[in-house]
Design a protein around this nucleic acid. Structure first.
Lengths: 377, 377
DNA sequence: GAAACTTATGGAAAGGTTTCCTGAACCAGG
DNA sequence: CCTGGTTCAGGAAACCTTTCCATAAGTTTC
């Protein structure tokens, strides 16, 4: 790989003067109308007391319709907005929910985040984002310094291992918590049933007549592992065993959960014709797509020579004709939001089960077919 | 596409009882130690006044080392954390920065978000996420109801068209704003120089000897367009013109900015041998990858029969050997954070240019090569 | 040895809401 | 006409910090 440096960072835009001018104009404008109005101003403009303004705008307590109209008119005229600090100081509620997520730029995590965000905004909560990798220091920094700092009403932890001490701390503060993507000890969690999903995928291949299947998953010992890898492997093996098929160390290959990871392992697995299975069950669609790309490059036809199935229903799956077990991370996010907000809004309520399983379904496309009858047998 | 419904949503985890037991135990624990200590408790335990506690913990003002030790010890023993509502009520600072972003689950946006998040957390700020699409209602809801509600100190707007009125509103509140990804009227913005990047990519192809180049970009009229599409087209055309090459309406094709979008257009463009160019400049790597996949499927060799170049240096580009003009959205995010925090922490400061251009560089891989000598000429 | 600083601490005010409590007005029922 | 309930509105307390001001002790400086 060769690289050319682009001349340099150009510091000034072509339209500098114009943009700058506009900017400065706005800046001075600030100085003029620096007056930010408080509830008192609204009260006097509307000719009522602060208490009435508060009731009128929040919708709590008795306020006559005329008064309410006067107040909201005055508030609007003054451009008044309530100070959330003051408000939450007295109510004890911040209307924020903290979301801890290890990664953003990956389909599964991005989708969760989108779902959580949508659900929170719909219900009038703001989302505070903490992108925390597995580094212990980083995590404890977030826990001790940020989260706990009375800045959030509840916490949603995505695929994050939280120590019992941290859990206790959070729960001890009376903040609802929910997890997504893996069972957190002591925290209600929503995820798909990984064992069942893997079993379903494997059974699909078995049903088509495949007997020689390899599972490409994540590294079971990997630190990132959230029991996901081991569970999907478990479902795979369960299905094989139920079908009376043997398995050995060659039945399973570990790789990174992305397209290059699947490609690498695909090249390696499919390169040797004697070792080549008739079907591959990949633990994630991106891995499956990598395997398909490797197969294409090796001149192996999918599904004629090789069937491939994944899990996720990733946006790219349709283009590659990938048969897959669909999951909806965004809905899992919404579910978690439901839980914490429910706990917030009706105290005493708590999810009646420690774990909710999100639905999955088999989406059949063109990457799976019955195995080609063997020449030798 | 056929779908099988998985049996149903299973409502209970296998480990229900255990998980539930733990959960309940923690719940009751709450009732016992419901006492949340305030600054007063810390003060009396440390034997000092509230004022001293505040100074000791915040690090502002004079406090002797022994006193500071006593106070922090007491605070730690009581598990005391300052109430951010109370604190920001008096200081007027929330330590939050709002980020408005139209999409999360796409490399460019996800990377920006990761960069912004990292930079904010490093500097002790929290990030409030607003995932706002272009819907006018949704946007105004965020603006009027959330953002403005005195919940953020500053705003970073990613690729978002903000009306002058909205800008004025924000600036009028004295909140620093920065944009990423496109010039916002009146808001300092950081992005790459799209025209220059497109010119660089095109010049690379020209330098290799290509004379028949097609540009696959985004729809210039699309509402999502943030002048990005038109600017990259402009750079392309500039380079052609500078090289003395003509161009017509066949020189440019519009599609969606993702792999399937590139694939679709690639199939269509490359399907007709007479129309097929010797090189394609795609406005984004994902589009370029789609074109490569289409070429492979049509038996067109890259780079022997067709050179392809993109913009981004997407994580998948390396695997596809894609030559590209690299940009770093995460660094652009950090730059924007620098700007707003600087404005926050040294009032009066403002970026000296309305626009900062992030660096780009050409990354050469194996998808570009000199065109094959024509049989006919 | 007094004046001028520097360092350390406490008391009290301020910041902008929400909510409790109280009182007035109004209406229906006996 | 009186009682009790409902609706409406205001005064004031409470929420929990930070910061201003004042005081006092210790340290330099001429």
């Amino acid at each position: 790989m060769t690289c050319f440096e682009l001349p340099a960072t150009v510091a000034l835009a072509a339209s500098r003067t114009r943009a700058l001018g506009f900017w400065k104009r706005l800046q001075t404008k600030v100085d003029e109308e620096v007056t930010v109005s408080g509830i008192e101003d609204v009260a006097s403009l509307a000719g009522v007391s602060k208490a009435t303004v508060s009731r009128a705008l929040s919708g709590r307590g008795y306020v006559s319709v005329e008064t309410r109209a006067k107040v909201s008119d005055a508030a609007h005229r003054l451009g008044y907005v309530v100070s959330s600090s003051a408000s939450s100081l007295v109510t004890g509620r911040t209307n924020n929910v903290g979301v801890i997520i290890p990664r953003i730029n990956q389909w599964f995590f991005g989708s969760i985040l989108e779902g959580v965000e949508r659900a929170l905004l719909d219900r009038g909560y703001d989302l505070m984002l903490y992108n925390v990798s597995k580094t212990v220091e980083e995590r404890s920094k977030v826990f001790e310094y940020f989260l706990v700092r009375k800045r959030v009403d509840a916490v949603i932890a995505v695929t994050l291992e939280i120590t019992p001490a941290e859990t206790e701390r959070l729960v001890g503060l009376g903040k609802p918590i929910a997890g997504i993507g893996g069972p957190l000890e002591g925290i209600p969690t929503v995820s798909i049933d990984d064992v069942a999903a893997a079993r379903l995928a494997t059974e699909h291949l078995l049903l088509l007549g495949h007997r020689d299947i390899v599972h490409v998953g994540g590294d079971v010992d990997e630190q990132m592992d959230f029991h996901v890898h081991s569970k999907r492997l478990k479902g795979f093996l369960e299905a094989l065993t139920a079908a009376g098929l043997p398995h050995d160390e060659n039945s399973y290959l570990a790789t990174r959960f992305d397209i290059p990871g699947g490609y690498r392992v695909g090249k390696q697995l499919l390169g040797d014709p004697r070792r080549r299975p008739t079907a591959v069950f990949a633990a994630a669609d991106e891995v499956a797509i990598g395997v398909i790309l490797a197969a294409r490059e090796l001149g192996i036809s999918v599904p004629d020579d090789l069937s491939v199935i994944g899990i996720d229903n990733h946006p790219l799956s349709d283009m590659f004709g990938l048969t897959t077990v669909e999951q909806r991370p965004d809905l899992q996010g919404e579910h978690a939001v439901d839980w914490v907000i429910r706990q917030l809004e009706q105290p005493g309520w708590s999810p009646d089960a420690g774990h909710a399983f999100a639905p999955t379904r088999l989406v059949m496309r063109s990457s799976t077919a019955p195995p080609r009858p063997r020449a030798g047998s």
